[in-house]
Design a protein around this nucleic acid. Structure first.
Lengths: 348, 348
DNA sequence: CTGTTAGCGCTTTCAG
DNA sequence: CTGAAAGCGCTAACAG
């Protein structure tokens, strides 16, 4: 096995090339004020020696290692995994590396991870998922504080602040439309199924709720059930809910996994899909095409959201002005758990 | 909005506390040789000023920023997402941050990302997934070269090398057992369905192949199909394969998504599951419980693999000796796409 | 227990 | 176009 070679420094290169370290530094950074002759020679020697500049030293000098921190609750989550994948790709395309923290859902851990990012001196931080926006100003202070030092990008969240930028899909509208659709397709007892009351969840529920109101249903006719855990658990909760008090003829779920639990529930109860029960999921994940019948879902344009976020971030880092809140329209993807309706019967 | 405060340095703290920077450094690093009185005072002032040590400077001094690089083809992949999630958690528990690169499946990008990690001076790198092991020594050289500078941990891969450590699930055995099971349950035309001939895929196929041989089937009776892309595409490939030449009575798939495509194929062809066709997936992902009937699958103990990998890495970094190859037995998870057989009919 | 000081390897004025 | 030299903020001998 080869020896662990001692790392070369800029001095080694400069002396071999017979130039000063400043010149080496200049060619390293592509400065235009180096004669192409010396530039070539230095490059040659760098190549020969397999020299790699020390990133820490450079970071110390410039104050940046071109790194962006990404915080997400858990990359094992389908939606978050997609987002992180897109974000990382875009960041790398822009010459930034990604340091990732899966913070989980515990508040203290989130705060702590945010501090870790700051102490690492990342150039910015991206909070992925609406879990990071708390309901009180006090509990959101950790974000405000971080934003004093670095830009904070929110993916599916919004918080007012000088150096905070929210990029969201329009969950309110998406759920308003989806609930309206269910109503128009004949559903009257529409269940809103969700996990946690996050920022995004509240918007979804509001959209659902307003849609029912605008369709002429009374507030008492709104149905909602919170359920956590795995598919099996959710299915049990649904069954209990169904039996105990309320039947329902459709489920509008906060994510695809919830909808799949509903689908399994329907199977168990021998409810025909979509004749007796309609289902709509959210995120348009791979899950929606794994089940049968395949799940109608809401595509919230994750990739575009990520691209926008990184583009905005780059502008922020360049000191350009950027909108503090941008929204993307979601798209309803019809599959086989809903009755088809024609929203525009008169043509067009 | 508050001013962007100028970052404090260790000098600010030392002068305020009336001690030298060395003392401040000592309390920062929890050195025991500081009187508890001064320690307390310094800590107090650090707190007051909201001082955060500069990670780059520290990195330059110590040669490390306690960072591990993780390379994976794509965190949007279910299996890889799980692995990255577990790895990141374990690393953070051990005081290391994670910088993540999703390299994609292109060789050049992988090599380039590896170099990026080296130039970032990470303390070690973890390659997640068998995509990183190439079939020729020449193309594996990028790993060997990296291992000259830093430890390289392989998750589901193996490569001989001084500073390279492979942690794998025993894919050979898992597929040997699964194929044997299918045979014993009455299947005679068992199709091995896979995507790419990765390191791990070759082991799976070998297990499959040896099992058939040991069950008394001839090499000509082996059936295998390569198929990439999304579920819809794989289903089409299966249909074409089925029609054109070969029928099959069971599918042993390299991952759950492939198996789900087979499940959809079976549905289309009105083949009863498991009476007319048996299916076994791999990875025991959420997909396996989203479909119906639920998919029998192989649990390759991803979490344990990740924990082992990080534990090994910590030992390596401490200079302790570590096995260069460790394997974990997978577990067959029976669900509803296979006929139940009793492997131990005589009891026990 | 504490302070002095010499690096760590690079960037960046400032002169020439 | 090039070089000298002053940091960047911290760690770690070494000396007291």
């Amino acid at each position: 096995m080869a020896e662990k070679e001692k790392q070369q420094t800029i001095y080694d290169i400069s002396s071999r090339a017979g130039v000063s370290i400043a010149t080496v530094s200049r060619v390293l950074n592509g400065s235009p004020k180096v004669s192409s002759k010396t530039k070539e020679r230095v490059l040659q020697i760098i190549e020969e020696c397999g020299y790699e500049p020390n990133a820490f030293a450079r970071g110390l000098g410039t104050g940046s290692m071109r790194t962006i921190g990404i915080l997400c609750a858990d990359v094992a989550d389908l939606y978050l995994a997609n987002a992180v994948s897109f974000l990382e790709r875009e960041l790398r395309l822009n010459g930034f590396d990604t340091v990732l923290n899966c913070t989980g859902y515990d508040y203290e851990t989130k705060v702590q991870c945010m501090r870790m990012m700051e102490s690492r001196r990342v150039d910015a931080v991206i909070l992925v998922g609406s879990q990071y926006i708390e309901s009180t100003a006090k509990r959101n202070r950790y974000i405000i504080e971080a934003s004093r030092n670095i830009p904070v990008m929110l993916l599916n969240g919004y918080l007012k602040g000088d150096n905070i930028y929210g990029n969201l899909s329009d969950d309110y509208q998406a759920f308003y439309d989806a609930a309206s659709r269910l109503y128009k397709s004949g559903c009257r007892r529409i269940l809103f199924l969700y996990r946690e009351k996050t920022y995004s969840c509240r918007l979804k529920q509001q959209g659902y709720s307003d849609a029912l109101r605008d369709c002429g249903l009374l507030p008492e006719q709104e149905l909602s059930l919170q359920s956590n855990g795995k598919i099996e658990q959710i299915k049990k909760n649904l069954t209990a809910y169904y039996r105990e008090k309320h039947s329902f003829d459709s489920v509008l779920a906060g994510d695809d996994e919830l909808a799949i639990a509903a689908l399994k529930f329907a199977g168990e109860q021998k409810l025909a899909i979509p004749e007796e029960i309609s289902l709509i999921g959210c995120n348009n994940s791979v899950l929606s095409i794994c089940c049968s019948p395949e799940l109608s879902s809401i595509d919230n344009k994750c990739e575009m959201l990520c691209i926008n976020t990184v583009t905005s971030l780059m502008r922020v880092l360049e000191g350009q002005s950027v909108s503090h809140k941008t929204m993307l329209l979601s798209e309803y993807i019809e599959r086989n758990t809903t009755r088809h309706i024609n929203l525009y019967p008169s043509g067009s």
